[in-house]
Design a protein around this nucleic acid. Structure first.
Lengths: 211, 211
DNA sequence: GTCTATATAAGGATAGAC
DNA sequence: GTCTATCCTTATATAGAC
């Protein structure tokens, strides 16, 4: 419950970081209940009691992890700004999200595990902040649409669809790979091309004969 | 491990069905490890040992559930046929999948839980059958594209995107609701309108001046 | 077929030596 | 700070009465 937030030595910082990385690995793969302190300790190269020397409980490790990741996780949406061409701006958002699925799949699965199970460990501060941010960006998108700079699509469902399509490559990675088989990570380049085409076609306003 | 497949009385069938429904509820919400036999027994209105009278183990309940659901789960993709207009055919698939998210959210989350965690309990028979089916439909879509009846988009990633966008409303239901807030289930109608517009725009071939 | 009681194991957390 | 040993709760599964 209470965070261990007094000054720490370098070795303390290092061990905490090691534990958090190990915990990210284990929690993202097995979910909160499926993860064990034993697995986390082993992944961190420490003994179980030693892990609990740095964090008061398994739940505290998870909470610290979530708190530390949430900022980076919503950064791409925060960065969706009013400058530039709306279509290109949203396409850039899609690409940033896809890039996060490629480079931070564990973080994506950590959140996916939580949300699928009803987000019992994601406090109202987190979900609340999320809603405020989405409302803000949805209003901006709505403005673009009313100005005729974007095809008229429900902004909320547009955002949901971008989350769904991009996070899919991290959250459902095993399924994607089992279907696409051998190719290593090539499918991320394919996915980027596909999603760019999908959203460009849907977002471009009907405008006066652009072809 | 071994299925209990000798003849059963009506009461046996009824209790097995009750248990499986309760298990679907509990597994879909908490995942395999997070679910307990106590929860399943309580949800089924039976005692824990009585549940284990009908199934040899927790794992057997889960396996029976998955085996029983997989057929219905992939039915919409199987139904994607060569008749009619390709764009409308795919849009119909999108609507069927979205409808399943609305009417069978527990089933969707059951599979989501499994796949996010690396599908440790989904045998190669299931994932293998999946790949064969997707390969087949992807080839059909490719054919449509080469005939100029569909905009050229990677068929595999198109299918992934349809899974992602439609299942999102079941798997990430709490997040969707926390952002869309009060409206009861209206968002499914909105989602259908959005997804129809999204895919119609992207799938319609450039063709000779249809507007 | 269904229950109470219980065996047994796993896992979170603590005690206390070093 | 780190470890071994251990406590204690939870959870799967079984025994055996009814």
């Amino acid at each position: 419950m209470m965070g261990q937030d007094r000054p720490r030595t370098r070795i303390q910082e290092k061990n905490r970081a090691t534990i958090l990385d190990a915990a990210l690995e284990v929690f993202s793969q097995h979910g909160f209940r499926g993860a064990t302190l034993d697995q986390i300790a082993r992944a961190a190269g420490l003994s179980k009691p030693n892990v609990l020397y740095y964090f008061p409980s398994k739940e505290a490790i998870h909470a610290t992890l979530v708190d530390g990741l949430i900022h980076d996780w919503i950064e791409p949406l925060r960065a969706l700004g009013p400058e530039g061409d709306p279509v290109e701006e949203i396409l850039a958002y899609v690409r940033r999200k896809l890039e996060m699925s490629r480079t931070m799949p564990r973080e994506s699965r950590l959140f996916a595990n939580e949300i699928v199970q009803g987000a019992p460990r994601l406090g109202p501060e987190i979900t609340g902040a999320f809603k405020v941010l989405v409302d803000e960006k949805a209003a901006m998108i709505r403005g673009w649409e009313e100005a005729g700079r974007l095809a008229p699509l429900d902004p909320y469902h547009l955002i949901f669809s971008i989350w769904a399509t991009t996070q899919h490559y991290a959250d459902f990675d095993v399924q994607v790979r089992s279907i696409l088989e051998p190719k290593g990570d090539v499918h991320f380049a394919e996915a980027e091309a596909f999603l760019t085409a999908l959203y460009r076609a849907a977002l471009t306003p009907p405008g006066p004969a652009t072809g």
